[in-house]
Structures are given as structure tokens and as C-alpha cells.
Design a protein around this nucleic acid. Structure first.
Lengths: 190, 190
DNA sequence: TTAACTCATTGACTTAAGTTAAGAAATCAA
DNA sequence: TTGATTTCTTAACTTAAGTCAATGAGTTAA
């Protein structure tokens, strides 16, 4: 399992044997059943996760309806917005499949960054890559209509259709479940 | 002018006198006239900017229409997606006002990070804050309709209405200029 | 096995954004 | 200053998403 993390980090820089060992040794894992809630609205968080297997969904309630913010799957990092902060969470984190993660926390992070400054440098680089990806995703979303967004999701993350229910996907696409149903029907005919 | 940068960084951590001096000494500035294009689609970039005064807009062309991605104003950092990369830019960067920036480049950045590791640590932290803000912005956008988005913009960035033209703002809100015009009319009546 | 519940689909209707086109207002340049 | 250009507004029409309600399909638990 450790290999997956090293592989992920190696995309961005060369990981020395020493650092690899340090990561491997300090890594610890947790696994959750489908339906497990990692974080509740109003709750606090001192853990962040690297997904090795499974799917985590972030969502919040607006007028009693669940609004899916994001689906996180294999090779993705989930850092709660209130990670290491003393502010209550605005959203839920829920496993929508049996999920295995590598867990970290502020203490461990700090210690590792101190011991291996290269790791913090790498974190900065990855954070910047994520910013760029977010902006591309957001721009794509803004300049598309619901049907185009659905097609784009099918192209870039086809697995999600199998992994999540349609009402979860609908709000992820910024539309109502009924609309998603109609879009699918419309596209079937073509 | 240097003070603005120090002030910005001080929000996140304590800046030692030594680091302050280093930043101040290495800082250099540029100013551009309204209309100046900093980066063209297809072009390359080796500069990033911290805006001291003015406004920079990022946009691209889709079916001949300008789609505004973002407006950057005072205290914001503009890092082109292809900064320090040998890939052509997907978008334009244009000053929509006379603009004064602090400029950096990969070489200077690297040098400063090497000399002052604390600065790279700070960059990581700021990058993570930006990720969180992006996600909040995106979520707000997805769960709002065009009218709500417009009202939210008026609340959070009211200055933009004076600084940018309506067709620029319209695409920034993910709608057509005609719709923005109608939304404004509708709200006037209320 | 059935009853309860959740989720997805469908239909009728409402609402608002997109489209196209025209004209008014504001801005810019010769 | 005037003519050209750009930007904004308005109107008529089209299209599709939202809303509400009903039904069907699938799942879960007693």
C-alpha cells in the first residue's frame, strides 16, 4: 500500500531512498465501511487522508437537500477545510464505498516537514498543481451547460456514474435530479 | 510599496526583520497601462505577479467570445498556469486598469526559497488557503442561480462592477450579457 | 414476504436563460 | 466635433431547467 503513495509523489520529484523509508515507516492506514461518516457539519478535524481505495464524498445541506461538493477517489488527497483549525466544519465527509486511506495529522506532518524539508517543498508544488487543476475545472464548469457538464463528467470520471447515486451526481453537476434524468433520456435518443 | 507585500505575508506568519529586508531588496516592480496584455493564448510565461494596484483579467476565447476566468485585484497573486512550464498558455492576461505589480520569476523564487526555507513553507500554507477559498467559491457558484451569483458578487466584490464592463462580468458569472442586463433590471424593480 | 423507504423516471406546468436582432447610449479616435 | 465602434438595453421567440406531483423500480428491514 505504501507503494501507491511513493508512486504518487514520484510524479512530481525524485524521492530518495531515505525519504521513501521515512514515509513508509511513518505511514499508517485506516479502513472504513461504506456509509461511514468521517466528518460532520459542525465537527472538527485533525486528520487528512490519501485515498488508496474507495470513494469519499463531501457534501452539505442547503434547505434540507444534500449538495455534493466533491467526490474523492484513488490517488486523491482529502484535506478538510478546517483541518488543524479550531473552526467547525461546513460540510460532511462520507465514505460512499468501503474505503482504505493513509491518514496523517498536523503533528506528524510538522515533524516530517522538519525532518525532510524536501517534503514540504513537494507539498507546495502539489498544492500549486491542485490550484491550477481547480481553476481549469471551475472554468470548464462555468462555460458549459448542464448537458455539456454531464458529458464532460462521463469523459473524465466515468467511474463516478457507477460509484455514486444520481441525486448525488446531480448536485455535483449543479442541477436537480429530475434534470439529470431528462438529460440522460435526451442523450439516449441521439 | 514593499510594505504591502510584507503586510500580506504577515497575515500568515511572523516575518523576521532579516526576511523582510531580503524581500524588500529583491522585490522589483513593473507598471502597465490599461489594456496592456501580459500574456497571450499560445504564449509562454516566466513571470508571476503580486498586484499592488490595479486589476488583471484572465480570459480565453470560445467560439469567438471572451470568457472571463478571473479578475485579480490588489493583494492578489497571479500565477499563470504555464508559469515556468514549457507549455503554451490557454488564456490571456490583460490589465483592465493601469496596474502596478511586484514581479517574480522562477529563478528568483528558487533562490529565495533556498536562502529562506521559511518562505517556501509560507508559500505552501498560502497555496493551501487558496485551495480552500477556491473550493468555497466553486461550491457557492454551483449551488446558486445566476441572480444569486450576481448578488453574491455585489456583496463580496462590489468594486468589480465599476472596474469591469458588463460583458466581462457576465461570462465571469457564467451567463450572457443580455441575461445580466435583465437580472439587473429585475432587481431594480424590487 | 411484505411493508416501508429510497431512488429514479415521467408528465404538466412555470420560470428564466439563450438566441437573434434592433436600436440606444457611451466611448474612442480621427 | 463628428463619425465609428463598442457596450448596454430591450423585445420576441426558443429552449431547457426548476417545481410539484405521481408512479414505478429497487432495496432494506421487520
Amino acid at each position: 500500500m505504501e507503494k501507491q503513495i511513493i508512486e504518487y509523489l514520484s510524479k512530481y520529484t525524485v524521492i530518495t531512498k531515505e525519504l521513501e523509508n521515512a514515509i513508509t515507516e511513518s505511514a499508517f492506514f485506516k479502513s472504513y465501511k461504506k456509509g461511514h461518516v468521517l466528518l460532520k457539519e459542525g465537527g472538527f478535524s485533525n486528520e487528512c487522508y490519501f485515498i488508496l481505495e474507495g470513494c469519499i464524498r463531501s457534501y452539505f445541506l442547503k434547505d434540507g437537500e444534500e449538495k455534493t461538493i466533491e467526490f474523492y477517489t484513488e490517488e486523491q488527497v482529502v484535506t478538510p477545510a478546517n483541518y488543524a483549525k479550531s473552526i467547525p466544519s461546513q460540510y460532511y465527509l462520507e465514505c460512499i464505498e468501503d474505503t482504505i486511506v493513509n491518514v496523517s495529522n498536523p503533528g506528524l506532518e510538522k515533524e516530517m516537514f522538519k525532518k525532510y524539508p524536501q517534503l514540504e517543498s513537494l507539498s507546495r508544488i502539489i498544492a500549486e498543481v491542485i490550484i491550477t487543476k481547480h481553476q481549469e475545472t471551475f472554468t470548464k464548469f462555468k462555460t458549459s451547460n448542464p448537458e455539456e457538464r454531464y458529458l464532460y463528467m462521463l469523459k473524465t470520471r466515468p467511474d463516478l456514474m457507477q460509484r455514486a447515486s444520481q441525486y448525488q451526481i446531480a448536485s455535483y453537476l449543479g442541477i436537480k435530479p429530475e434534470s439529470l434524468s431528462r438529460i440522460r433520456k435526451r442523450l439516449m435518443k441521439k
